[in-house]
Structures are given as C-alpha cells and as structure tokens.
C-alpha cells in the first residue's frame, strides 16, 4: 500500500514568503512520526497542510493517493482529526464536547461508550459540567477524546502536552499509544520535547527554517544523526 501522505516539492508561502519547502516526505500508514524543530521552523504549518486546513501554494500533497485540494471529498477529510496546544473546547458540556465530532458526522456516541471514555480519562464526575470550567489537563483530555472517538485514520498533534504536568503528559502519551495500536492509526506529533519524541515516535522528521533537514527512525535520529544540525538538536543545543 502507498504511504498515507506524500509531499513532493510542497511549498507554503504567506504573502510571498516561503515558510515551508519540502522536497519529499512520505508518511507511512500506522506510523508515529515526531515532527521536531526550532520555533518558527514550520511544524504547525506542515500540520495545517496535512489537516487540509490550507492547501500548499506549490508542489504536490497527496492523501491516500488523492491530490489534496478544495475538491477533496468530505469523507476523506473526515479521516483526519487534530488536537492543538490549546484545547479549544466548545461552550457546551464535557460530554457534548466529546461527542461533537461524531455529531458532525451524523452519528451519536452511545452512552456506554461515552461512559467508557469518561472513565478512562478520569472525567466521569465532570461529564455534565461546562467544558469551559475545566483545568488545563482535564480540558486537554477532553480534546483528545473528542478527536479519538471518531476513530480517525490519522491523528495530528500540535504540541498537545506543552502546557501540562507530568501526570497529564503520561496519560496522554499512553492514550495515544493505546489508540494507535487499537486503530492502527497514523500519528504525526509535533513536539518541542526531544525526550517525548524519543518516547513516542517510530520516526523523527527534523525541520529547520521550513526545510526537512533529516528524517530518520527514532533510534538513528537520537543516536547517530546524519547531519550536524540534527545532532545539535538531539543534544538540546539548538537554540529555539
């Protein structure tokens, strides 16, 4: 089977300034790819392309063999969900937030499944509460559940644990690992934390000033990187 995503000479420019310029990148089905790089290197921009929120300004991006553009069918777009650094919950109850993505698809989360999710994330006592009154960790757990209940083929994560304490970080890493195994989903995980990248990723892609400097399996990236920049980054020496 072909890779789930393929980028070829894909560029993204804002007002004529190219902020992302990827010669070639293939993201395999069911892999966990960590996307790392200094601030402003284009990680979130790449994720927005993979999320079909913005089209590339040049070059080709394919999803499951289809060219990504305005005519990408809704059913294809709906195979991908994302969680961002800020949970962006809706002004509704916790339960309504968790079921929201399914609601968009004309489905309803069965009560016993909702109960299972709440239980798993330690949110049972908060089900009926407004999602806007949650702590940061609780809110991000809700956002994770909301993205996962639709059983996506691809989960995009943009530093979802950047603001969280170790307990919540661990919980979310475990959750993603379990769901990834259960659904065989592809995960693209943007992280600032090289230790997290090492914990969660099969492969690491390292962006620098909008270009892919190195893509390697996690073990190689952290122990024997091919480029000096990647080596410096893996040692934590590259200034953000």
């Amino acid at each position: 089977m072909p890779p789930i995503y393929q980028l070829q000479h894909a560029q993204k420019a804002y007002d004529g300034r190219v902020v992302l310029d990827i010669d070639a990148l293939a993201i395999g089905r069911g892999e966990v790819l960590a996307l790392v790089g200094p601030s402003g290197s284009g990680k979130s921009t790449l994720l927005r392309l993979l999320n079909f929120l913005e089209p590339p300004t040049a070059g080709a991006l394919t999803f499951d063999g289809r060219a990504v553009g305005d005519d990408l069918p809704l059913s294809e777009r709906r195979r991908v969900t994302a969680v961002f650094q800020r949970p962006a919950l809706l002004r509704r109850s916790v339960a309504a937030n968790i079921g929201y993505g399914l609601g968009l698809r004309g489905e309803k989360l069965p009560p016993e499944e909702l109960a299972a999710w709440l239980e798993r994330l330690g949110l049972t006592h908060l089900a009926r509460q407004s999602a806007l009154r949650l702590s940061a960790g609780e809110a991000q757990r809700v956002a994770m559940a909301r993205a996962l209940v639709v059983r996506p083929d691809v989960l995009l994560l943009d530093e979802p644990t950047a603001n969280l304490d170790p307990y919540n970080v661990g919980l979310i890493e475990r959750l993603v690992a379990e769901e990834q195994r259960a659904l065989g989903m592809t995960v693209v995980w943007v992280t600032h934390d090289i230790f997290q990248a090492r914990r969660v990723a099969d492969r690491v892609a390292f962006l620098l000033a909008g270009r892919l400097v190195e893509v390697a399996d996690a073990e190689t990236f952290f122990t024997a990187p091919a480029t000096a920049q990647a080596a410096a980054f893996a040692r934590g020496e590259l200034v953000y």
Partner: peptide, 17 residues
Amino acid sequence: DPGIKLQVRSLGATRLQ
C-alpha cells in the same frame, strides 16, 4: 478564539456546520 474555528474545521465540519 480563532483556535475554535481551526479546531471545528479539523474535526470535519462542513461550511454550514
């Protein structure tokens, strides 16, 4: 919050949704 718009779109909303 502009993040809400991005998040709702990323969850697979149509324009009307």
